[in-house]
Design a protein around this nucleic acid. Structure first.
Lengths: 206, 206
DNA sequence: GTCTATACACCGATAGAC
DNA sequence: GTCTATCGGTGTATAGAC
């Protein structure tokens, strides 16, 4: 079947366009607040025509978009980290630079709002790989720094989750008037706080 | 009108129940994924009966719930801070202890997902007070520490937003297997990171 | 104040012509 | 591959009896 071949990843320019506009809409507003008609409009076709490229319906389309996005982030993160050297701060900055260079993905909202709507089984099946792709490269950064004696020994999962949350918060702050109005600068500031701390101590500028 | 009197804040035991169950549902799943029928069921009445206590419909009900919750948090935060002394770390811990003692409110999701569904005007009208209530007490904590020379001079809004994001992330991590499984302990750990930093330096345990 | 009944809109999905 | 037409389901809200 053609539809199956497409679902397996066949190029099909129109299908690519559908995935692209669907991703933009899902990321901007979340699963529940995007309709198939909106996706079709943005892709330049009628709502019913969408089902030629996404025969599995809305939930399946979301799944594909999500998985593609996760793979994209994992690859980008690893590429960014590969050229970042061994030290903690530049590695965290590489993570942040990658992340702020992408459209804000609202990872936490996706996990808490969108995924449960797909059902418990589906949700669990997607959460695992998403965790591995997004969190794991960051936990490795922290783990490496701890092993090198550069960072104190704390829960790497907690640190990675917090960093992701901060990067989402920074994306939220931008364009709202809170903060310094520049995602990258804000992200770097917060990384410095995570590394050096906020406290004024001897030998560091207040 | 009776309905207006109730909307102004009349006691009405049934109306209190409606607000309570609506808050629990909205916080747990977000505006889009809660139906008026669910709220009615949880409140022990039929869907149509809801409109006696919430004549403004779903959007208005959400607004009231949101404002009540914001006021609740503002009062709780200020009470917690009033007895926390002058130093930065205990003050941040007081904020965290209050926050983790409450049902996770997913502040970021509310702002990015729920509010836009109410329309731009509505959204802006609610975002301002919400910011003032939740962020401002925390920015004051940071500002105070900076004025006392206890903390480095950085954007207080950025720091407050990051702290809130971390506290939401910690709520998310709990019950997922990530992290240490205890919201309060995780929150305190992250506050220590914010204050002292992650880096291993002389005079501090690695 | 709570109920039944129902209007009305929207959305996801399918059928089938072209 | 795209279209028109339409079905079925769901959700908000209203009307009106009790």
């Amino acid at each position: 079947m053609r539809a199956v071949a497409e679902a397996m990843g066949e190029p099909s320019e129109a299908r690519e366009r559908v995935l692209d506009v669907a991703e933009a809409l899902f990321v901007a507003r979340g699963l529940a607040r995007v309709t198939m008609r909106e996706i079709a409009d943005a892709a330049g076709m009628r709502q019913a025509s969408l089902y030629h490229h996404a025969p599995g319906g809305k939930a399946q389309l979301y799944r594909e978009v999500f998985e593609r996005m996760i793979a994209h982030h994992r690859a980008g993160l690893e590429r960014a980290l590969a050229g970042a050297g061994p030290r903690l701060r530049p590695r965290l900055r590489a993570v942040a630079d990658w992340y702020v260079g992408q459209a804000p993905m609202n990872f936490l909202r996706m996990m808490t709002s969108d995924m449960p709507a797909l059902g418990d089984a589906e949700s669990a099946a997607l959460a695992g790989p998403a965790y591995a792709a997004l969190m794991q490269p960051i936990t490795e950064v922290f783990r490496g720094a701890m092993a090198a004696g550069e960072a104190r020994a704390l829960d790497p999962d907690l640190l990675a989750g917090s960093l992701l949350a901060i990067l989402d918060a920074v994306a939220f702050a931008e364009g709202r008037g809170y903060g310094e109005h520049d995602r990258r600068a804000m992200a770097h500031t917060m990384i410095d706080v995570l590394v050096d701390g906020l406290a004024v101590v001897e030998g560091r500028p207040g």
